[in-house]
Simulated scan of single mutants.
Amino acid sequence: MQVAFAGTPEFARAALERLHAAGFAIPLVLTQPDRPAGRGMKLQPSPVKQFAEAHHIPVAQPRSLRLDGKFPEAAAAAREALASARPDVLVVAAYGLILPQWTLDLPRLGCLNIHASLLPRWRGAAPIHRAIEAGDAETGVTIMQMDAGLDTGDMLLAERMPIAADDTTATLHDKLAALGARLIVEALELAACGGLRPVPQPAEGVTYAHKIEKSEAAIAWTNAADAIERRIRAFDPFPGASAQVRGETVKVWRARALMQGRGSVAPGTIVAVDADGIGVACGQGRLEITELQRPGGKRLAAAEFLRGFPLEPGMRFEA
Rank of each mutant, 00 (worst) to 15 (best):
K251F: 13
W102L: 04
H173E: 13
R86T: 11
A224Q: 05
L306C: 15
E159P: 00
A148Q: 10
L99F: 11
H56L: 08
T8E: 06
H55R: 14
A209V: 08
R121E: 12
L28W: 01
A25T: 13
F309A: 06
Q260I: 00
R299V: 15
K298E: 12
M315G: 03
G194W: 00
D34G: 05
M161D: 00
K214V: 12
A192S: 11
T31P: 01
G314L: 02
G40F: 15
A209C: 04
K214N: 09
T142Q: 00
P120N: 04
R262H: 09
F24D: 01
G205S: 02
L28P: 02
M1Q: 08
A178L: 13
Q284A: 04
T142I: 00
A319Y: 03
K49E: 14
G7I: 01
E80V: 01
V273G: 15
G283N: 08
P45N: 03
G314C: 06
A25K: 07
A319K: 11
A85K: 04
A178P: 01
I184E: 02
I132T: 04
E213W: 11
P198W: 10
V273C: 13
Q293N: 07
A52C: 10
D147C: 06
L99V: 13
K42A: 12
A272G: 10
M161P: 01
Q101L: 11
H173T: 01
E229R: 13
K42T: 11
E288F: 00
T103V: 15
P200V: 06
L43Q: 12
P162C: 00
G40S: 13
W102S: 03
A203K: 09
D105N: 12
